[in-house]
Design a protein around this nucleic acid. Structure first.
Lengths: 226, 226
DNA sequence: TTGTGTTAGTGTAAAAATTACACTAAGTTC
DNA sequence: GAACTTAGTGTAATTTTTACACTAACACAA
């Protein structure tokens, strides 16, 4: 059996929660097939752990290091790579396209400003897609995305990991908007701020927002070291 | 690469939290090797999903159906089956003992009364071991157990799954003792009861404990259907 | 039958956490 | 300096959580 990892990479652009998807590679030789979008992922290499593989996939795609990355579920349906389009594609790229593939899902939080797919070397291969407008993906990737979303929503409130999706310096309004969009519900401004600020690792900076046409907001950072 | 599932099966005997471990099979042919205890598990069969495999392992071992069972983590260290004793054992039982094995961990909650290892057909192969006295296990099974325990502790408070480890009819004192032992801390009786009883699915029965030499306790059941 | 041992079962007041809610402040642009 | 826009702040009411001690019901022994 083959084993792969797939990464569900979340990003946030101040308006929408997005997902990093890749366009499947077109096989060489003219015979064009129906391409689908897919999660970035790869087969495990011989001497690589699951975490290493996931980190490799991420860094090959984005050149980013030190990104938030967490295993969340293994997907092992024996038919998960047996879809028609999936088989067509696999026949072009795998020695054993029929072979069963188990995949381990990772979800990852990226500061979107840190990665511009257009600028990356394999230009255009990857793109940020609105999480609420995901098309039909290859394999069982839609299911994997759904699970990752559940996980994200859960960890967002349980562990306050929202800042992983924001720039180093952020305002509390940004963070609140992020929560509201991910959880799809309005939050009370004052209560939200109280809640965030009781976390000691959220530090106010001596710096304000600039170039906005209203009262500039205080900037904060999240202190990783305790 | 091979893929297996391993089941961390918890049980509770009113005093201790226990784990179902099996003694590794002795290879035939006299050449006795050092045997270790291990988690029940098996390689995936060709057309079997992960969940199905885990359920099969469990039902082959205990003949029980409808047991609480949940995937919790995949373990993929490339060297996780390369220990000396592990290799020795694998050489006796596997065609490709060197082959890398990824395993997916499941944790499972069993009513201990439902399964007596002594009585099962492969008598003596399995046994209940105190979770706080686990010996060195085969492969990375100690690590798997540790992760499962974390998961159990978390779900016990988050989802109140304690009754899965108790008989159909149980008393609140039993349930409290269970919580205290798993979480390793004393709980306040009154607050504990309030907390449990605000869950509508915990139903008082018209029945009391019998044969105890003190005030008999009210029995409760957990209503699975909503 | 009475007393003893043992666990079951119950309520309340104090403290802490969560919720709901509305106005002033600080910038920008015209 | 007026208009616009978002930032930022406190308090009272409600809910949730905590701490805590005595009576009730049974078995057994005397």
């Amino acid at each position: 059996m083959d084993v792969s990892v797939d990464c569900v990479v979340f990003g946030f652009d101040d308006q929408k929660l997005k997902l990093l998807l890749i366009e499947q590679k077109q096989p060489g030789g003219g015979a064009s097939i129906k391409l689908q979008k897919a999660l970035p992922g790869d087969l495990l290499m011989d001497d690589e752990s699951l975490d290493e593989a996931a980190r490799r996939v991420l860094s090959e795609l984005t050149s980013l290091e030190g990104i938030y990355l967490k295993q969340f579920h293994a997907f092992g349906d024996p038919n998960r790579v047996r879809g028609l389009k999936d088989q067509e594609w696999l026949r072009s790229f795998r020695n054993n396209p029929e072979r069963r593939v188990l995949t381990v899902g990772y979800y990852s939080l990226v500061k979107m400003e840190d990665f511009n797919p257009k600028a990356a070397s394999f230009a255009g291969k990857a793109q940020w897609i609105d999480v609420y407008k995901i098309p039909a993906l290859a394999f069982d990737h839609n299911e994997i995305v759904d699970e990752a979303l559940k996980m994200l929503r859960h960890e967002l409130v349980a562990d306050n990991i929202g800042f992983e999706l924001l720039p180093e310096k952020f305002t509390l309004s940004q963070l609140q908007r992020l929560h509201e969009i991910i959880l799809d519900k309005k939050l009370d401004k004052r209560n939200f701020r109280k809640n965030i600020l009781k976390n000691d690792r959220v530090k106010a900076l001596n710096e304000k927002q600039k170039g906005v046409l209203h009262k500039p907001a205080q900037l904060f950072k999240f202190d990783r070291v305790e």
